[in-house]
C-alpha cells in the first residue's frame, strides 16, 4: 500500500509525465525519420513550392522556443502545485494542533466549573480550583497571543512598545508567575543573576518570549526535571540561558525550530501538543530588539539551552 502511495507521489507523477512525453517525442521523431522519404514524395506532388533548398531557421527557432516554454510552464505549475500542497498540509496540521491545544485548558476549566456546580466543594478546594482555572486561562491567552503575533510577526510590521526594564527583576517576576507549573511538574528551577542591567525593552513582547521558553522547557522535560536560567554578560550582549534537561534536539533540527509551524517530528515529540509558533514568534521578537535567539543541544535526550542575547546598547529610545 505504501509503495502504491509512493508511486502516486506528485514527484513520481511529474517524472512519469515527463518520461511519457519524451518517449512520445522520440517515437514521433523516429516515425518521421523512417517515413521521411515517402512523406517528402507525397508532399512534392501536392506542393512542390515547399521544397526550396533553404532551411526555415525562424520556424525552427520558434518551435524550439515553444517547446522550452511548454516545458518550463509545466515545471513552474508543478513547483507551485507542490508548494500549495505543502501549505495546505501545514494549514491543516496547524488547525489540528491549535484546536487540540485550545481544548485541553478549556476542558480543564469546564471540568472545574462543573465540579463547583455539581459537587459540594470545601473552601480550600474551591480556592485551589480557581487558581488552576486561572492558570489555564493564562495558558489559553498565551496561545491566543502567539497566534495573533504570528500573523504580524513580520519584522517590519512589529512595533515595539519599549520601556526601561530591570532585566533581573523582570526575570524573577516571570519565574514567579510560573511557580505553580514548576510545582506541578516537580521541576526544580534555579535563577542565577550575575547582574541586573536596566535595558530598554518591550515588556509584553519579552514576557511572551520568556513564557514560551519556560513553557517549552516544562513541556519537553520529564517530571522531576530541572531548569536553570542564567543571566550573564557575553561581550556586547546580555545573555539569558534557559538550560533544561528535556528531550533535546538533533543537529538538523536546531535551525529549523525557529521556522513558522515547524515541529520536531520524532518518537519523543509525536504525542506532545504544540502549534509550532512559540519559537518562531520568540525569534522574531528578539530579532526586533536587535538581539539573537539561539539553541544548543548535545543531542536527543540530553537537554537543550536556549539563549536570548540582548545588546547592551540597543539604540532604542524610550
Amino acid at each position: 500500500m505504501n509503495k502504491l502511495r509512493a508511486l502516486f507521489h506528485p514527484i513520481m507523477v511529474f517524472i512519469g509525465v515527463q518520461i511519457a512525453w519524451i518517449v512520445l517525442m522520440v517515437v514521433w521523431i523516429n516515425w518521421y525519420l523512417e517515413n521521411n522519404l515517402s512523406i517528402k514524395e507525397f508532399a512534392q506532388e501536392l506542393r512542390p513550392d515547399l521544397f526550396t533548398a533553404e532551411v526555415e531557421w525562424l520556424i525552427l527557432f520558434e518551435g524550439c522556443f515553444l517547446m522550452l516554454l511548454i516545458l518550463s510552464g509545466v515545471y513552474v505549475i508543478f513547483v507551485y502545485w507542490n508548494k500549495q500542497n505543502r501549505l495546505n498540509q501545514m494549514q491543516s496540521n496547524f488547525v489540528a494542533s491549535v484546536s487540540h491545544e485550545l481544548k485541553s485548558p478549556l476542558a480543564s476549566i469546564q471540568l472545574y466549573l462543573e465540579t463547583l456546580k455539581y459537587q459540594d466543594v470545601s473552601k480550600e478546594d474551591s480556592k485551589d480550583f480557581i487558581e488552576t482555572m486561572l492558570s489555564d486561562t493564562a495558558r489559553l491567552s498565551g496561545l491566543i497571543e502567539n497566534i495573533l503575533q504570528s500573523s504580524k510577526a513580520d519584522p517590519k510590521s512589529m512595533e515595539l512598545q519599549t520601556q526601561k526594564i530591570d532585566l533581573g527583576q523582570f526575570l524573577s517576576e516571570v519565574v514567579n508567575d510560573h511557580k505553580r507549573q514548576f510545582e506541578e511538574k516537580n521541576c526544580e528551577v534555579k535563577l542565577q543573576l550575575e547582574a541586573s542591567p536596566v535595558l530598554i525593552l518591550d515588556k509584553k513582547a519579552l514576557q511572551m518570549v520568556f513564557n514560551n521558553l519556560i513553557g517549552n522547557a516544562l513541556r519537553y522535560s520529564p517530571v522531576g526535571s530541572s531548569l536553570k536560567i542564567h543571566l550573564h554578560r557575553t561581550g556586547r550582549f546580555w545573555d539569558i540561558d534557559f538550560m533544561d534537561k528535556g528531550i533535546g534536539f538533533e543537529k538538523k533540527d536546531m535551525k529549523k525550530v525557529f521556522k513558522k509551524f515547524y515541529r520536531v517530528q520524532n518518537k519523543d515529540t509525536q504525542n506532545i501538543e504544540g502549534a509550532g509558533l512559540g519559537l518562531f514568534i520568540s525569534h522574531e521578537i528578539v530579532k526586533n530588539h536587535k538581539g539573537r535567539l539561539k539553541v544548543m543541544s548535545p543531542g536527543r535526550g540530553q537537554g537543550s539551552v536556549f539563549t536570548v542575547s540582548l545588546p547592551i546598547s540597543r539604540g532604542l529610545t524610550v
Partner: peptide, 12 residues
C-alpha cells in the same frame, strides 16, 4: 498527561 485535568478527574 494534563495534570490539571487529571487532578479534576481524580477529585470527582
Amino acid at each position: 498527561d494534563e495534570s490539571h485535568l487529571a487532578k479534576g478527574l481524580q477529585f470527582n
